[in-house]
Amino acid sequence: MSDDDGIWDELAAREPIDPATLRLVLKDQRSWSRQWVYPVARPISNLLVAIIRVVRRFVPMRLTAHGLMDALCVWFLRRFVSPAAGELLIRHFIVETNLLAFIARNTGLSEPTLRPAALRELGNRAVIEHDLNVFNILRRAGVPAEERDTSMLTVGPIDAEPGTRRIARLDIQSALCLMNIPFALCLNAAEYRRAVQSLRLDTHLLAVIADLTGDPVFRTWAPAGVALRVDSRLEVPRAVYEHAVICEYAHERLLRNASRPATVRRVAGLEEPVAV
């Protein structure tokens, strides 16, 4: 067994993620494109997006091309991204919607319903709706209900079109780097800034879930830094990937807590009651 095999085995044993999803993540991380394409795609994407954003600051009109962006996204996923990476991307939309629906249902809000099940469903303004849902739910979260309902935490079958003939099979991080370019080009400055800042709200998302469940473990996954800033230097593809992993942690933790209601769990080495 190589040293690399040992590292992946250790990750597989310790990551608090749904086992089937973890296998997809590890397969994706060990792919050839993650090793060879991502290191090249990352600086190219950062440079092109920076140029696009600077140029768009001098364009007086708030030009958008949402339809073009959606069409390019679906076409790219079908032809250049591996089915495993495509499934992970679709799953993220479902998982984050589940987390927001958990908050909404348990604080008396209307629940978001954005749960695409196939690649083609990502072409219906899914990215924009996804970002708006995060802001709307976290801004309006109210008084918790007496009983916690976790019945919305389900993920149905996902069709990433594994039978579609692909030109390449890129990993999820390489795909995010390349997809960030048309996002920056097709969204106006305010929309792109809102999408970037939605990634900064993980701290608030986890804090609300921690308060609702009484489980402080959720707060330990908050990203480093503070949310109260407009971060123009945030590396969006990397932040999106880390955001998706954090959402997977929280989703799996909620499911595990739901299967062990009203019990005492060991938290940070101490016995503490955790209500779910």
Rank of each mutant, 00 (worst) to 15 (best):
R78T: 00
V81A: 02
E146T: 13
V134R: 10
D149I: 00
P162S: 11
L138N: 11
D70Q: 03
F80R: 01
N133P: 06
E87K: 04
L100V: 07
A71T: 14
R105M: 14
P112V: 04
M152S: 15
R140W: 01
V155M: 12
I137E: 03
A104C: 10
V74K: 05
R125V: 01
F80H: 07
F135T: 04
R139C: 00
R139A: 09
T154F: 09
E161K: 09
H92M: 00
D131C: 11
L99T: 05
S110M: 10
T164Q: 13
T113Q: 15
M152I: 10
P116C: 10
G163K: 10
T97F: 03
A117D: 08
R139V: 03
N133A: 14
G67Q: 07
H66L: 05
S110Y: 01
A118D: 14
A160V: 01
M152K: 09
H130L: 00
S110G: 12
V95Y: 06
R140P: 03
G156C: 04
D70M: 01
D70T: 10
H92N: 14
G108Q: 07
S151D: 14
R105P: 06
V143D: 10
N133K: 00
R79W: 12
E161L: 14
E96P: 00
V95I: 14
L72Q: 04
E121A: 13
A141D: 09
I137A: 04
D159S: 05
G86C: 15
R139E: 15
A85V: 14
L153F: 02
G156Y: 01
A118P: 05
A71F: 09
F102Q: 08
G67R: 15
A118S: 15
E87L: 08
T113A: 15
R91D: 08
L68P: 05
E146C: 11
N106G: 12
D70R: 01
R148D: 07
E146V: 15
L119I: 09
I137F: 03
R139Q: 07
P144Y: 12
L119G: 05
P157L: 01
A118V: 06
A160T: 05
R148Q: 13
R125G: 02
E129G: 04
L132V: 04
L138T: 10
L63T: 07
L109N: 00
L68K: 04
L153N: 15
F102T: 07
M152V: 15
L99I: 02
G67F: 08
L63I: 14
T97N: 14
A118Y: 03
E121T: 13
E87G: 14
R140Y: 02
R120Q: 11
G163P: 01
F93T: 02
V143P: 05
D149A: 12
L63P: 00
L68S: 06
E147C: 04
T154W: 06
V155Q: 13
T164L: 13
G156D: 03
M69A: 07
A84C: 05
G142H: 00
I158M: 11
